[in-house]
């Protein structure tokens, strides 16, 4: 049986670290960087375990600044 695989690409320089996408991800795959910041000084969001992502786009929809791009594909794994 196949499943949906997804991955997000974050525009790190545009992200303001508002954390709204973190509770929006029902699989809990997102977190802010703990040590790195972007040029504006904000910690930015990243996917902690991308292999679990199903590409539901919730994080991208709630992102106020449109920083998240989502790719999704059905696989036969």
């Amino acid at each position: 049986m196949g499943r949906m695989r997804g991955v997000i690409v974050v525009d790190e320089e545009r992200c303001k670290g508002c954390r709204l996408c973190i509770p929006a991800c029902k699989l809990g795959l997102l977190d802010l960087t703990s040590k790195k910041v972007n040029r504006k000084g904000y910690p930015y969001v990243q996917q902690t375990n991308w292999e679990e992502c199903n590409g539901c786009t919730s994080c991208a929809i709630v992102c106020p600044d449109g920083c998240i791009t989502v790719y999704r594909k059905k696989t036969e794994e």
């Binding site: 991208a60 989502v70 790719y71 594909k73």
Partner: peptide, 25 residues
């Protein structure tokens, strides 16, 4: 996975690359 044919959501084209001045969130 990161190929244009798998793209499902991106920032709308009309929203340009200028970072918005609004507060986070």
């Amino acid at each position: 996975l990161i190929q244009s044919e798998n793209l499902v959501y991106k920032k709308p084209r009309l929203l340009n690359d200028t970072t918005m001045h609004y507060c986070p969130g």
